[in-house]
């Protein structure tokens, strides 16, 4: 079953054709990687999914609803969560609060004026947050201020913040960018672990090691265009992919 369907998406920034007639289909439950050289339009494409950018033409259909023209919070409420290249977390708050906020957003919607109940007595939300922290191995730090953690831990936390909402689609923008090899492997393990939950994931990635460990479908983007699509193994051997990465005419 198709969960995300991107058809004929174009996006122009002045003289630059950032996305050129992009077509993409993501199957439910798949881990779909979007790879491509720098400037290929990967992040632009992702931004078109989450309401940060509006494509000039084309359509993005998620689970039967068009995402175009929706605000980021509306898109999230349809079941799409996003992990950023640099972790976006609530740095001033404790880890527990960081997880309770998305859990509340999932349960109570985009705006609820509950100014009287005590949030520290909300057992349902608190349990969700505590369990999620255990799942990503951060339970010992739950009262720590999240901004004081290492980058790897912040990434873990951000991922947990997305997962606690139990999204239908998880978008990951270079989840291992700037990480050491050890941290990268930890993140891969974590992503594999959450893969068992059956959440559909779209990963944008530079690191082939990450792509081949996780993805079961790969789309290759170059100069705003999808030049090839297939399984990771097929893509490894594809001449067009090699050309795009290494330049045509290489040996």
């Amino acid at each position: 079953m198709k969960i995300l369907e991107v058809s004929n998406v174009n996006k122009r920034f002045g003289g630059l054709q950032a996305l050129d007639d992009v077509n993409l289909t993501v199957e439910q439950g798949h881990v779909h990687a979007i790879i491509g050289p720098n400037g290929a339009g990967k992040s632009t494409l992702l931004n078109c999914f989450v309401g940060r950018l509006m494509p000039d033409t084309g359509s993005v259909i998620f689970d039967g609803t068009s995402l175009l023209g929706l605000a980021p919070h509306e898109i999230n409420q349809t079941g799409v969560s996003r992990v950023f290249q640099t972790p976006e977390i609530f740095e001033d708050l404790s880890l527990l609060d960081n997880l309770m906020i998305p859990a509340l957003a999932k349960r109570d919607g985009a705006f609820t004026l509950n100014a009287w109940g005590r949030v520290d007595q909300d057992a349902e939300i608190r349990d969700q947050a505590e369990h999620m922290l255990e799942d990503v191995g951060l339970q010992d730090k739950r009262h720590l201020q999240s901004g004081t953690m290492s980058r790897g831990d912040k990434r873990r936390l951000e991922l947990a913040m997305c997962l606690v909402q139990n999204p239908k689609l998880l978008l990951l923008d270079e989840p291992t960018a700037g990480m050491s090899r050890a941290d990268t492997n930890n993140t891969i393990d974590l992503l594999k672990k959450i893969g068992e939950r059956g959440i559909t994931k779209v990963i944008i990635e530079h690191d082939m090691h990450v792509v081949f460990s996780l993805a079961n479908r790969v789309s290759v983007l170059a100069q705003g265009h999808v030049i090839a699509e297939g399984t990771p193994e097929e893509m490894k051997e594809d001449q067009r992919v090699k050309d795009a990465y290494l330049g045509a005419g290489h040996e």
Binding site: H73, I89, F90, M100, I101, A105, G109, V119, Q165
Partner: peptide
């Protein structure tokens, strides 16, 4: 101490994350 108050702290801390968490700031 309410959920509303927690959201206000979230506004101060990171509005971007708030939006992508499904909250209308």
């Amino acid at each position: 101490r309410s959920p509303f108050g927690m959201m206000l702290l979230a506004v101060k801390s990171n509005q971007n994350r708030m939006n992508y968490t499904g909250l209308n700031t």
